[in-house]
Write a protein that binds this DNA or RNA. Sequence first.
DNA 1: TGATTATCTGAACACCTGTTCAGATCAAGC
DNA 2: GCTTGATCTGAACAGGTGTTCAGATAATCA
Lengths: 194, 194
Amino acid sequence: MARTAGSHSDITGPRVREAALALFAQHGYAAVSMRRIAQEVGVQAGALYNYTPDKQSLLFDLMQGHMDDLLNARSQEPVCTSALARLEAFSRFHIRFHLERPQAVFISYMELRNLTPRNFAVIEDLRRRYEGELETILRDGRDIGAFHVADTKITTLAIIAMLNGVNTWYRSGGRLSLPEVEAIYWDMVRKAVT
Amino acid sequence: MARTAGSHSDITGPRVREAALALFAQHGYAAVSMRRIAQEVGVQAGALYNYTPDKQSLLFDLMQGHMDDLLNARSQEPVCTSALARLEAFSRFHIRFHLERPQAVFISYMELRNLTPRNFAVIEDLRRRYEGELETILRDGRDIGAFHVADTKITTLAIIAMLNGVNTWYRSGGRLSLPEVEAIYWDMVRKAVT
DNA sequence: TGATTATCTGAACACCTGTTCAGATCAAGC
DNA sequence: GCTTGATCTGAACAGGTGTTCAGATAATCA
């Protein structure tokens, strides 16, 4: 056997990335073999190498794609003027964006140590850029007296850690709706910095 | 060759656990082989099986030991009376305890998915018991009007996620001392719930 | 229809995986 | 000093790892 009926890179390519995303998120990068990914796609392992140079690139591309999506989506959000409105917009955007793609979020946090040093540096830079947006909001707000924060860098990390926590328990269709979750977390963020 | 000079289970046993802890924390459970652990201990892979029935038990014992330590240490903390004092004591204890053993903390969060279902249930039960202590504090405080929280369960998870975030950036000997870190986080927690 | 290109298979490569165990050597107790 | 039990080695087992590639087949275009 060889090329199979109906095979096309426009179909197989996305399916490879989807399978890798789901399997990496569920079992972890190191625990998932190329043969397991191929099985999910319905193809032999060798065929995966038409879509990625190696396993490491598969992971890196998923993570880089996620971070690019994050920064792009953030840049297209409407700009707010007041310090409080800016912080609220960031908090709600963060929750909404992250709850929409839990697998990519999970991978981007859990699999950092499985990146090569070069790839790690790229992802870390993107992450710092995103965190920098929140820190700017906090610093600007503090400078005009709207926020009371002891340390903008640590407050940035504390807020992001808190918001990321949503992904560990939220399930759509559960007890709380997305707007309710946004409201609860925004309330805590607001009180923590004022 | 066979038994080596100076070999003793009281020495090798702890070294096996220490090596596994360090390697699992750095590279992840799935990415670390028994031969790699043995190399760190200075022994052949087969010798590890004098100290653990299998690799899975090695991971589970580390995680269970960590959770036991956590609950024991917590139970020996002095009991506070006021709602605010109880919450402050919990927050400071959590930060202090977790910063003292970053590797065990890291493993206990990252390697949950590599536990067998039975082992996972045990660890999850211990975790829920610990989180329950914080939720009780929040609920009691809300009932007497000391705290204003929209949802005690979610607030519990949000606070713990925020406090856990310390481990991602804190390095002893860094810019901030442990008491300073405790104070900053306690300030944010206090404001978030009042 | 025929030639070309895209896509996949199946086998192979060298090496690594967790685990077992007979046998060898050391430490401890009499 | 000798015996007993604890501790480790080294080899083996069956199977899995990422990756490569010649060859086969399907899709595509002239």
